[in-house]
Design a binder for these strands. Structure first.
Length: 212
DNA sequence: ATGGTGATGACCT
DNA sequence: GGTCATCACCATA
């Protein structure tokens, strides 16, 4: 990766709050260049995890085990972890050794839709409307890309363009420990009315997906 | 032992 | 067809 791109990635994933970064990812294209070809889509849902002081974060109270180690890496690093036998995709935010990040939870497919259908043996919104689903659609079943930098590995994110949409909704994060002090913080962001937002009800999704 | 979940089948409209 | 409850998934600790 050339110097200019490294600066662009570093600037995008640090220099501002993780909440702001999570919200700024909405409407941007995320690509994965896998063995079967290029797959990807527009990010419609993302959550912020705020590190040592966030009771819902993997790095809460400075937890630092081998599996969480990628969170302590450079801004823009890939952090893949498994939960309930599924894989989830995070991008590290903030400077090295500040273990914050964002979880990508929903994508509207745009590239390699046939490949994703094949990987998922499903179609429609079920292709990518959840963190584990979108990783399966990408065909990823391991953590091999951990610690690599976005835009310098098979994961690419378009930092120059953003698809315009009408409205952001902020709400509680999904599935986090309800006993924690931060369980109810509004750190989940999604494109209002987009059908690929996880758990959205049909009656709440807009025909145009909430795009302008 | 325990999760930042997903598929399925029952029930409702 | 849509919504909800239930259960199984498997890596990590």
């Amino acid at each position: 990766m050339d110097k200019a791109m490294l600066k662009k990635v570093t600037d995008f994933f640090s220099n501002r709050s993780t909440e702001t970064i999570a919200e700024d990812c909405l409407g941007r294209k995320l690509i994965y260049d896998g063995p079967k070809g290029r797959v990807g889509g527009y990010i419609v849902e993302a959550e912020a995890y705020l590190g040592e002081n966030d009771s819902a974060a993997h790095a809460f109270q400075g937890r630092r085990t081998p599996s969480v180690e990628p969170l302590y890496g450079a801004p823009g690093s890939v952090y893949i972890y498994s939960i309930h036998g599924r894989y989830c995709f995070d991008i590290v935010t903030q400077p090295k050794d500040v273990p914050q990040g964002i979880l990508i939870r929903g994508l509207e497919p745009s590239d390699g839709i046939d490949i994703m259908k094949q990987n998922r043996s499903k179609g429609g919104v079920n292709l990518t409307n959840g963190p584990g689903k979108l990783m399966e659609a990408f065909g990823i079943h391991d953590c091999d890309l951990n610690l690599q930098l976005v835009n310098d590995c098979p994961f690419k994110m378009d930092l120059d363009h953003k698809r315009p949409f009408r409205k952001v909704i902020a709400s509680e994060r999904i599935g986090v420990n309800q006993d924690g002090k931060d369980a109810s913080e509004p750190l989940r962001f999604n494109v209002a009315g987009n059908p690929y937002v996880s758990g959205i009800l049909k009656r709440d999704s807009a025909p145009d997906g909430g795009w302008d």
